[in-house]
C-alpha cells in the first residue's frame, strides 16, 4: 500500500542517502549471523519432512500388516498419527522461533537508526495500545485475546502519533474467531472532541463473503450511538457513521473531510478502514490481510535493500495519513 505524494518522493531520495550512511553497515553485521540461523531453520523443516516421510513409509510398508481396528478412530493407530503430528508441530514451533528470533534481533539492531530518520519515534515489540482503549474505540467490539506485534510511538508534524500492529480474537473454543488483524493508528486531533463518533466501511454482501475480508462478523459496536445520515451520497454508500452527538459528528465530518476519507479508501484499497473520534484524538483501524513492518527475513540477505524499502514504504504510508486528512492544520477538517 502506498500514498505517493511529492513529499513522499522527496523523503525517499533523502532516505536512500540516509540508508547508505547509517543503516547499511549495521545491517551488514547481521549477515554472518543469518546463514547459520537459516541452516538451523531449514534443518527443522527437513526434520518435519523426514518425520512425515518416515511415517508414510512405515504405513505403506508395515502399516498394512497391523491388526484389524488398528486404524479405526479409537484404535492404537491414532497414537502414531498424534505422535507424528506432535513431532512435526514441535519442529514447526522451533523453526518459527528461529525465524522470529532472527527477525527481532535484526529489528532491535537496526530499528532505532531507521526510526531516527523520521524524528523521535520509538519501537516497542510485543506492545500494543491498551486493550481498554481499543474496546473503548468501539471499532472492533469486545476482545477475548490480543496478540501484539509492532508498536511505534512518536511525533510527526507536531502531532502525537501511535502505530500499533496486533490481532484480536473473540470467544472461546468453537466460538473463537478472529475479529481484527492489522494496525491501529492513533493521532491527536486538531479539533476538540467531547462525544464519540465512529466511521466504518459499508461492506457489500459479496465483500463480506469473500476471503478478501476475513472479519465479516466484526462490525463496530454501535451501542449507545445514533446513526448519522450525511449529505454526501457517495460517502454514505462507502461508509456508515454512528455518533453520540449529531452536531459534533458533522463538525468532524465536514464535506472536505468526507472527500479525504473517500480518497483514503481509494489509496488503501486492500485494507478495511474504520475510524473512531473520541477523547480529542482519532483512531484509524486498517484491517490489512498481511503482517506489516517486517524486517529480517531469513531467506533474504540482510544487505538486500528491498526489505528496508518496503518497511520505509509502509511506515511513510501510515505517516502520510496526517497529510491525507490534513490533521496538522487548524482548519484542516
Amino acid at each position: 500500500m502506498s500514498a505517493i505524494t511529492e513529499e513522499t518522493m522527496d523523503y525517499r531520495k533523502r532516505f536512500k542517502a540516509y540508508y547508505y550512511d547509517k543503516i547499511a553497515n549495521e545491517l551488514a553485521s547481521f549477515e554472518a549471523y543469518r546463514t547459520p540461523q537459516m541452516v538451523i531453520y531449514y534443518f527443522y523443516i527437513f526434520m518435519i519432512i523426514l518425520t512425515i516421510a518416515i511415517a508414510i513409509g512405515w504405513v505403506l510398508s508395515i502399516g498394512k500388516t497391523m491388526p484389524p481396528g488398528f486404524w479405526d478412530r479409537s484404535g492404537d493407530g491414532n497414537f502414531i498419527i498424534y505422535g507424528v503430528f506432535g513431532i512435526c508441530s514441535g519442529f514447526w514451533f522451533l523453526a518459527n522461533k528461529v525465524k522470529k528470533n532472527f527477525e527481532i534481533k535484526v529489528k532491535k539492531g537496526v530499528i532505532e537508526s531507521f526510526l531516527a530518520f523520521f524524528g523521535d519515534f520509538k519501537w516497542m515489540p510485543r506492545e500494543s495500545l491498551p486493550r481498554e482503549e481499543i474496546e473503548q474505540s468501539k471499532l472492533i467490539g469486545l476482545i477475548t485475546d490480543l496478540k501484539a506485534d509492532d508498536y511505534f510511538q512518536g511525533t510527526h508534524k507536531g502531532l502525537k502519533f501511535v502505530i500499533s500492529e496486533f490481532k484480536t480474537w473473540r470467544g472461546r473454543g468453537k466460538q473463537r474467531h478472529q475479529t481484527f488483524g492489522g494496525i491501529f493508528v492513533k493521532i491527536d486531533m486538531n479539533k476538540k472532541i467531547q462525544g464519540h463518533t465512529i466511521v466504518t466501511e459499508e461492506l457489500s454482501v459479496a465483500k463480506q463473503l469473500t476471503t478478501f475480508n476475513k472479519f465479516p462478523l466484526c462490525g463496530v459496536d454501535s451501542s449507545g450511538l445514533e446513526k448519522v445520515e450525511l449529505e454526501d451520497i457517495e460517502f454514505n454508500k462507502m461508509f456508515k457513521v454512528y455518533s453520540t452527538d449529531q452536531v459534533e459528528s458533522r463538525y468532524i465530518l465536514t464535506t472536505t473531510f468526507m472527500e479525504r476519507l473517500k480518497n483514503l479508501k481509494e489509496i488503501y484499497k486492500v485494507c478495511q478502514i474504520k475510524a473512531s473520534f473520541f477523547d480529542d484524538s482519532i483512531l484509524i483501524a486498517m484491517g490489512c490481510q498481511r503482517d506489516m513492518f517486517l524486517l529480517g527475513d531469513l531467506n533474504i540477505p540482510v544487505t538486500d535493500t528491498g526489505e528496508v524499502q518496503e518497511l520505509f514504504d509502509e511506515f511513510i504510508s501510515v505517516l502520510s495519513l496526517v497529510d491525507l486528512l490534513h490533521l496538522d492544520s487548524k482548519t484542516g477538517l
Binding site: 450525511l230 449529531q246 452536531v247 465536514t254
Partner: peptide
C-alpha cells in the same frame, strides 16, 4: 478570530443537522 472560526464551524455543523 480563531475562536470565532471555531464557533462558525460548529454553527455550520449544527446547520447541517438542522437541514437534514
Amino acid at each position: 478570530m480563531e475562536t470565532f472560526a471555531e464557533v462558525e464551524a460548529e454553527i455550520a455543523a449544527a446547520r447541517r443537522f438542522y437541514n437534514a
